[in-house]
Design a binder for these strands. Structure first.
Length: 441
RNA sequence: GGAGAGGUGGCCGAGUGGUCGAAGGCAACCGCUUGCUAAGCGGUCGUGCGGUGUAGAGCUGUACCGGGGGUUCGAAUCCCCCCCUCUCCGCCA
């Protein structure tokens, strides 16, 4: 969420910055200004009245005889004031409700350093790590390889859960587990992250905090246990969502808190399953395990001082890259242009791994700096110095990495002509020293 | 799921309709003191939103005692709904 005061005071700048990322809802921004004025006026009025009531109430407390005519007269007068206050409060909360609804749907402002552009084609390749493997044969994709090795089973997954799920078998399942282990070890032991284990079912408030709601409800799986729960949810009671990423629980960990400056940066990592309904993506990546309703991910989240934020983004991105480097996977770093930025992000680097089977780079990690956008929604603050006022922290996160896609990349980049797959050396200790996955028989 | 208890400031903990943003203690910060041994004394010590402003000082108003609604001239205190925590029972990995 953007800061109302800043937006209204610098409407033109805000408009221009939002236009860069393709958000051009002029009426919404104009309405914001009008609402801000209406809100302030309502506050001034209601507070003046409340002041009057408080003063009068205090005087009433002094009246010894509560049954006197004087007391009754004052009471009757104040009764009217009370009603008026109620009406003004309604006016204020109406303006505030509309204001926050509006504000909650406005995306973050891209950082100045973010390149202009309207979509994926305008993203900027910053660097390439490693070399694309060359094959003496036509490279196969992970589906052929995985099914051939007997480690991926899409048909049985469909039997259980429908499209966009996978079953990992034998060494496939173990490979997945080994990757999780390697990633967590790296981030904890070498990058200084605190490992966390968090719920994968969260309340809607958590999703508001990181920005998935209210705008992207269609991408989420919502849990309605039964008809009664459904009704309670309507009434503001139970309602839980499967997390689309561990960013949600990890970032919400410090919602409503004031952190000590000395504790920053706070760095968390967690492995979780992630769930996405990807409602808008029918027909995209239908083959294989590139886009699944359920997938594993190791996530990195950092809470930092605003001054350090840009350097922190580089650091975080480096941590995610370290996984790919450790595994010897060829990838590139791409900076998203303004038009391709996620809703809450100020600046994002995508790591794209080379997939020989697709003859393309595909996203395997997305590292973003959110400025105070999430922190404002979360009310996550820190106190710069003991006597200072609390200030919003900056949040960052990145995948470190998407485990399923990492498995895909290993299968495709390390494939051999006979359909077997070499195991990256760094991973071998996690697989009992195994150096090659071979087809059965 | 059933029965009961409870949610108050960074923490502990008073407070059952008006003088309560809220006693007291701890922690923290500042100063003083220092032959009463990590001691003593004094002071400071919440956040949001408005107004004013020599505008990230100061002054001032207002709100906040889990969340929301209600009663009342007035609510931390009374009523209703919801959320959460704890204890016991049931169920369960």
């Amino acid at each position: 969420m953007l800061d109302l005061r800043t937006v209204t005071e610098r409407l033109d700048e805000t408009r221009a910055a939002l236009a860069r990322r393709g958000f051009t809802d002029a009426p919404a921004l104009d309405r914001l200004g009008a609402l801000a004025v209406a809100r302030r006026d309502a506050i001034v009025d209601v507070e003046a009245l409340r002041h009057r009531r408080n003063v009068a109430s205090e005087a009433m407390a002094q009246v010894a005889d509560k049954r006197s005519a004087e007391f009754a007269a004052r009471r009757d007068e104040l009764r009217a004031v009370g009603a008026e206050i109620k009406a003004l409060e309604a006016r204020q909360s109406e303006a505030e409700r509309e204001l926050t609804d509006l504000l909650a749907r406005i995306p973050n402002l891209p950082d100045e350093s973010v390149p202009s552009g309207s979509g994926e084609a305008d993203n900027v390749e910053l660097r390439v790590f490693g070399e694309r493997p060359r094959f003496p044969h036509e490279p196969r994709d992970h589906v052929d390889l995985g099914v051939g090795l007997g480690i991926l089973d899409f048909e049985r997954a469909a039997k259980l859960s429908g499209a966009r799920f996978v079953v990992l078998r034998g060494l496939g399942a173990r490979l997945e587990r080994a990757l999780i282990q390697l990633m967590l070890d790296l981030h904890v032991d070498e990058h200084g992250y605190t490992e966390m284990w968090v719920p994968t079912l969260v309340k809607d408030t958590a999703l508001h905090g990181t920005g998935q709601l209210p705008k992207f409800a269609a991408d989420l799986f919502r849990i309605a246990k039964d008809a009664q729960w459904e009704r309670e949810a309507e009434a503001g009671g139970h309602e839980l969502f499967l997390i689309p990423t561990a960013e949600v629980p990890l970032t919400n960990l410090h919602a409503g808190e004031i952190l000590d400056a000395g504790d920053l940066p706070v760095a968390y990592t967690a492995y979780t399953a992630c769930f996405r309904s990807e409602a808008g993506s029918y027909g995209k990546d239908t083959r294989g395990m590139i886009r699944q309703h359920q997938f594993d991910k190791v996530e990195l989240v950092r809470f930092v001082r605003p001054d350090d934020a840009l350097a922190e983004l580089e650091r975080l991105t480096g941590h995610a890259e370290a996984v790919l480097q450790r595994l010897g996977l060829c990838y590139r770093v791409v900076e998203l242009c303004a038009g391709d930025l996620g809703f809450s992000s100020k600046k994002t680097y995508d790591l794209e791994v080379w997939l020989p089977g697709q003859n393309a780079y595909r996203e395997i990690s997305s590292c973003s700096w959110f400025g105070d956008f999430q922190a404002r929604r979360l009310k996550a603050r820190f106190r710069p110095a003991p006597d200072d006022k609390p200030q919003l922290v900056h949040t960052l996160n990145g995948s470190g990495l998407a485990v399923g896609r990492t498995l895909v990349a290993i299968l495709e980049q390390y494939q051999l002509p006979d359909g077997s797959v070499r195991v990256p050396p760094a991973l071998r200790p996690y697989l009992g020293g195994l150096d090659t996955l071979r087809p059965p028989g």
